[in-house]
Design a binder for these strands. Structure first.
Lengths: 253, 253
DNA sequence: GCAGAATGCTCGCTTTTGAGCGGAAAATAC
DNA sequence: GTATTTTCCGCTCAAAAGCGAGCATTCTGC
């Protein structure tokens, strides 16, 4: 058997079994364990799988949990600060929208001990954070569950949003630009974010500084539909100024 | 077994059993207790679970409050059997509704490895159970979050239900009677259950035997709107007969 | 036969596991 | 309540399993 062929078959084998040990694969293909290790090292480098001591697991399995929590941990400290600041801008009696995201969840955490606030969200993790917050009314938008991120999206989500009216919406974004405004790489998530912006009087964009100045394929909202931008103090002053000139209230923490 | 694999399976084991002791896990995986302790220490650090003296419990929000889990543990074995049986009555390709409840969640658990099934639910715990089930499309109805039970209810829930059409609905109930049909003590939960019954072609009532023959204040549905009753074999034969005479297909497990 | 690649082998090194022991925490007795 | 017993935990050390790196061997195409 060709080395190349064997590597393909290893991936195939993993797709079926999800895990395999080096010795198991060695027997399966009748080659020395060293050879398997070499194959696995290369396959891992190419991103097909993830090695562990004694064997290997399919990358997606390995990724299923960590991918989200890892992502959540990038700029963790900054996101915590943003969450705290954003929560301070919410008043008792407010009805707000919290968009799904790893920054917005920190807003929710800062609301746990508040009272008389209604939170509308499409993020199950945010609902979970608020599950013991007796003073918070939580309305979940409903919709199709995205397994990876625990977010709800789709037609139902949009329909529910249409029937609501809230004071403030806190929108998460992977890209905001002083000219192109709010953009997003995934088309299917755009209508929901647009719906949130439409039904809220005041729009807060919350995002860590690495997203500032970026542009993605699909436009969610032009800059003049947004009112506040809360981000980390790591953001360069020059960019902040551009947003301020676009009439955005920029808050850095 | 690989160390990594074992750790994943420990989490999996916990998702099923909610709690486990070190010695129990040690036997389950045929490793020394020290090894389990090490695994648990790491998993706890990674935030997957919470250790206690002598064992471990899942640390995630979908593991609910004591009051809820205690309730869930009543007739636990019977509910497991009902869940398994109900899942067998769901076919690939089906679109179904799973009502919020401690019995219906066992149906969800039996669907995890199935594929091509669409599940509509108003229970966040059920959504959580199915979050890693790649073959299941999960649609959450949305609505006001009930903090204690992690259920969604209210106007939004009803509106969403109105726009759906499914094949089978699995309804949980605290009271079913051969003459008075499905009744419920809490008025505000009635419209949602009625909505579920209205939009589904085939209605399955799933409940443990202690609820049979009981009557509550508010009528949810007369007996002739229901089609199947799945309950434990603990239910007395005389009562079963009465339901059968009311033209209900009674399944005992 | 020869060059280059793939494979197998050996040897220290690292990671994981199992066992023992002192101390902490729960359970039980008083 | 307190004291005693039992169970469980964390720590350390040693054995076992697995690993990477370098080198020898085999295979392949010229």
């Amino acid at each position: 058997m060709l080395a190349f062929e064997r590597k393909i078959q290893i991936v195939e084998f993993l797709r079926k079994h999800r895990v395999a040990s080096v010795s198991q694969l060695s027997k399966e293909f009748n080659v020395h364990e060293t050879t398997i290790r070499r194959d696995l090292a290369e396959l891992e480098k190419e991103g097909f799988l993830h090695r562990t001591h004694g064997g290997v697991v399919v990358d997606q399995w390995f990724n299923s949990e960590p991918s989200f929590s890892e992502r959540a941990n990038e700029q963790l400290d900054e996101k915590k600060r943003i969450g705290k600041k954003a929560a301070e801008m919410i008043e008792d009696g407010d009805h707000i929208i919290l968009d799904s995201g790893t920054t917005t969840i920190h807003i929710a955490r800062n609301l746990v001990n508040r009272s008389n606030i209604t939170v509308v969200t499409n993020d199950i993790n945010i609902a979970a954070e608020l599950r013991n917050a007796k003073g918070i009314r939580v309305i979940v938008t409903g919709g199709l569950l995205y397994h990876e991120s625990f977010m709800l999206n789709g037609m139902i989500t949009d329909q529910v949003l249409e029937s609501l009216h809230v004071r403030k919406a806190f929108i998460a974004t992977p890209a905001i630009h002083p000219q192109y405004g709010l953009t997003h790489p995934e088309a299917e998530l755009v209508p929901t974010k647009q719906g949130m912006i439409r039904v809220a009087k005041e729009i807060f964009v919350v995002t860590d500084h690495t997203k500032i100045g970026k542009v993605s394929l699909h436009t969610v909202a032009p800059i003049d539909q947004l009112h506040h931008l809360i981000t980390g103090s790591e953001a360069p002053e020059s960019q902040i100024q551009q947003f301020k000139q676009a009439d955005l209230n920029v808050v850095t923490v």
